[in-house]
Amino acid sequence: MSEHVAPPVLSTRKFSLWYGSHQAVIEVDLDIAERQITAIIGPSGCGKSTLIRAFNRLNDLIPGVRTAGEILFRGEGIYRRGVDPVAVRRHIGMVFQKPNPFPKTVFENVAFGLRINGFQGNLKDRVAQALVQAALWDEVKNDLHRKTGYDLSGGQQQRLCIARALAVEPEVLLMDEPCSALDPIATAKIEDLIRDLARSVTVAIVTHNMQQAARVSDWTAFMLLGELVEFGPTREVFTRPKDSRTEAYITGRFG
């Protein structure tokens, strides 16, 4: 795994987020390096999913959410006045915990984002390209218009969702527990895919599977009670963490 420091694509600057009076993220400073894989780990309720959702403003619709500090995408604050969250999401895609294909054909699932964005190019080519990138093409190429997203296995559905996110050519792909609903073989395929994707896309992944974070990521961020406790090269964090709270969590001695 490469550990050289690429310029950050996404950065948080003293970023905080509240759900009503509860502060879920506390003054987090984090840099997500370009075309590298950053894993965010931590126990349930540590704020990791909230943080990753904040990266493409998915928390906007939740009533009572308030933020402070900044999240910068290529130096531009995504929470600044006048920034369109839809435009943010075009650059920063998201894949969720449970695969959520639409009740449409495989082709239409992938073409969806392109159509709503008024894509003018060759739709067929772009869909095929996204399916190839998501390592699903060989399995669905003969059924593009015959099968629906629901006809696929869980692992295939998740790769379909990844293809759908990739079709609009985002610069960053956010993944929130992308394998937690999958069996070990489907998980291994997604992990291989994540490593492949990182050649062209920046990946940030939230996982509570520490072995997964250790396997796939270049950088690991450990969060606890809304705070970023430790951030460093994955190899370092998993062999010689600096903070005793990180040590306690990754060795399973929490609580």
């Binding site: 520490m210 072995q211 250790a214 998993f238 062999t239 010689r240 963490p241 990180t246 040590e247 990754i250 060795t251 399973g252």
Partner: peptide
Amino acid sequence: QQPMASDLR
């Protein structure tokens, strides 16, 4: 047990 950090060491 997939030991990590000091346990792994």
